[in-house]
Amino acid sequence: MTTAPQTIGSRARPNPLAKLWGSLSLVFESRIGTIGFFMVAFWFALALISIVWTPYDPNASLFGQNLPPNAENWLGTDHLGRDLLSRLMQGTQVILVKTRLPNGWVIPIGVALWGVLGSLTLGTLLGLNAGYRGGWTDQIIMQIQDALIAFPRIVLYLVVIAAMGQGDLVVILAITLTGAPGVARLARSLALDIKTRDYIRAAETRGESPWYIMFVEILPNARGPLIVDAMLRVGYAIFAIGTLGFLGIGLPPPDPDWGNMVNEARRFIYTNPLAVLWPSLAIATLVIGLNLFADGLREETTRYQK
């Protein structure tokens, strides 16, 4: 499906998806990378399954309250008698595979991923310009970036949410804004490094435009570290969504939110500690999985660079 059709005779230009897959598949060379991949894949699979099927309606109080795990409810029930497994499964969706727009529409790809995509785009744009052009452009972009970094993230989240209210898009915006400076920093340092290479001189002496150089000559070579960084950022984003959910200002209902599940369950931690454990585990494993995946990827990409 995603493999490039091998044109015979003519030079096959590798399809970008196949290229991406080519670089991702490196990860299986590394053991921790493989473990990470399967941890992440597990949650993705669960998210996709939950779209078509969950054991029960995640928002319906169908059972006794705070039940321990049993044959009907594999993970038990919460304080309102809702099935925890169904809620846990449904909770993956907004993070990983869908985003709800204010007008009620649903678009694919989850909030965490959109957010990281946003910061990747914004950060790369700023960072490449700062690094490649240097001079005043660099000074100004770096200053703005410094200011953004100076905001403690949580304050930025709080302020953005206080200003704009709750919603998937707001969370995406908050993740984008908090992530962009870090990406910009990375992209800038990569651009600073790559721009010293002779092939950039060659492009310049060919009279190529700065945009061509930044996006055609530099960006493809900065791709590896940026992708690795993005993986880690997805982890941070999930972490942040959990935190916001716990504080009660995260993704809005009706979809269950892992952080919020922890918050609700902790009042009954005496009687039903497992209700706290499951969503916590979910966040932790997903974040760890992404970290391992990124580590594996980094290990392999740097190995191939040498």
Partner: peptide, 24 residues
């Protein structure tokens, strides 16, 4: 620009690692 071109020192950085010989 066309009439004046350059050959560089370092073989490892003279080519963009992301593109094929043909493309470059």
């Amino acid at each position: 620009i066309q009439e004046l071109q350059m050959v560089f020192q370092n073989p490892d950085s003279t080519m963009n690692p992301s593109y094929t010989v043909g493309q470059q």
